[in-house]
Amino acid sequence: MTTTTQAAARLPIENPGQAYQRRKTTRGNFELYGWVFMRASGVVLLVLIFAHLFVNLVAGEGISAIDFGFVAGKWASPFWQVWDLVMLWLAMLHGTNGVRTIINDYAERDGLRMWLKIALYTAFVVVVTLGTLVIFTFDPCPPGAAADLLPSFCTT
């Protein structure tokens, strides 16, 4: 076979492996730190989450104690403010990074990946901002609110 016929025979498939070539090298420690963070934050979350669940749902009067007053009481203490803040941030960073991994593993098209990640990071910013704000500004009895909207313990 001459070179020309060989070339002609190959014509229908132009560089078939192209889509499979690694597009660029992306070296760096980012994914390394991410991997370590998932494990480190997982260990810390284990303590934070289960102590949180125990204190809220089991200790004392148990689940029936939970109301506006219970939450307000906890957040009056800097200890629980810091506890919940760390839990919020670690869970959100851990969960967001985990979902980022899942998107990378399962979304095949670049466009889809981009939109899913935009949605993910937007959700992260909204939840972390609102959550942080609520922990530090929570007030079960805002002054000037209609009395019928307030819990019973708010004495006006």
Binding site: R22, R27, G28, F30, E31, W35
Partner: peptide, 9 residues
């Protein structure tokens, strides 16, 4: 191998 497409995947 310390790459976004390396061992960490």
């Amino acid at each position: 191998l310390n790459d976004k497409e390396g061992v960490w995947r």
